[in-house]
């Protein structure tokens, strides 16, 4: 057998012997499961449990590829699992496609794939199908990943913004902005000091919460654009006024420090292992207690409430001094300030 090249070659995407070797040496051992092992055109799944189907897909282009608390592989699994979970779906199967740039170190690829496999195992979801393409050097940023997820919303479960009503209380499952804060810190040589991405699969936490019988109306994972953006989307969809309490929103000191240094607002930075839950007001104390029982919800907090909107949906932040100010969508992306 020839020695395995230590970088990805264009020929690895050619569909021939090298492609086969890459699949057999890297992806198959890491993701191994009966549906994948057939390596045929489509994975054939066992009949699904009763309920409505949920289907989602997400693309991942993170830079750097590895960061404290996670990497592209873990992110690609958690992102899709979490999109299913917050919709109330139990993840059944994932697919994963990787676009590799010629010259990518195979050792790095192995680490990312192993990490994706560990995340999938932690979420108890198999990766049943996949694809690999290789693009010439300079045409990609090391590696891009696209995952899709299939899930089942059990019969009788109905979550969504249509159920949000004035009076609902907004909970967050832990400190916000740890992922976004860690990524920007890495890009600017400021990593360390306890900064770590919160990247984690949330389906266990979601089942724990929903299984407790508390009345949850809707859930979202505040990824790109952070809590502020997610709340704006919700406010718009359900035509409500969301009031967030600035002092109640948990942010780790290390994240606050990075945000201060770089002039960023944690309310707009991504979380990858946190959920926002809209729950009936009288169930909120119990919901908070249930979230805190789970390892991923230890620092859950109640951060706001839903009010009737006078005209159109809006999000406002109540500052520590009792003044309300609008919390808008970002215009463009967060950019560094001059002073």
């Amino acid at each position: 057998m020839t020695r395995r090249p230590d970088t990805v070659l264009l020929a690895h995407g050619g569909g021939g012997r090298l492609t086969r070797e890459l699949v057999r040496s890297t992806f198959l051992p890491a993701f191994r499961n009966p549906a994948l092992e057939t390596l045929t055109d489509a994975a054939i799944l066992e009949p699904l449990p009763a309920g409505r189907l949920a289907l989602t897909t997400d693309a991942f282009v993170v830079d750097p590829l590895e960061f404290p608390g996670g990497d592209l592989g873990r992110l690609a699994v958690c992102g899709t699992v979490n999109d299913l979970a917050v919709a109330g779906a139990r993840p059944v199967a994932l697919t994963a496609a990787f676009i590799l740039e010629e010259g990518l170190e195979t050792a790095l690829l192995d680490r990312l794939v192993a990490s994706a496999a560990r995340a999938a195992a932690a979420a108890a979801v198999p990766i049943v199908a996949g694809d690999t393409k290789v693009v010439p050097r300079g045409k990609g940023d090391g590696i891009f990943a696209v995952t899709a997820g299939l899930g089942v919303v059990p019969t009788g479960r109905d979550l969504g913004d249509h159920r949000i009503v004035p009076g609902d209380v907004i909970l967050v499952s832990g400190p916000i902005a740890a992922h976004g804060g860690t990524i920007v810190a890495c890009r600017h040589g400021l990593a360390g000091g306890g900064l770590e991405s919160d990247c984690a699969p949330l389906n266990g936490l979601v089942e724990h919460l929903l299984g407790s019988g508390v009345e949850v109306h809707a859930m979202h994972d505040p990824t790109r654009g952070g809590v502020a953006t997610t709340c704006n989307e919700v406010a718009e969809r359900c035509n409500a006024r969301l009031v967030l309490e600035a002092t109640a929103i948990p942010v780790q000191p290390a994240v606050t420090a990075v945000c201060e240094l770089l002039g960023l607002d944690p309310l707009y930075l991504a979380c990858e292992g946190r959920l926002l839950a809209w729950v009936a007001a009288d169930h909120a104390p119990r919901a908070l207690q249930v979230l805190r029982e789970h390892p991923l919800g230890r620092e859950a907090a109640c951060i706001g409430r839903v009010e009737t909107a006078a005209a159109g949906g809006s999000v406002v932040l109540r500052t520590a001094y009792g003044v309300e100010r609008p919390l808008d969508l970002l215009s463009g992306s967060e950019v560094p300030r001059i002073c």
């Binding site: 002092t247 000191p253 606050t256 945000c259 201060e260 607002d265 944690p266 500052t319 001094y321």
Partner: peptide
């Protein structure tokens, strides 16, 4: 941008 420090000390602000 809002920071924990900026938002700190509502009592001092009221005073």
């Amino acid at each position: 941008m809002i920071t924990a420090q900026q938002l700190a000390d509502p009592a001092a602000v009221r005073g």
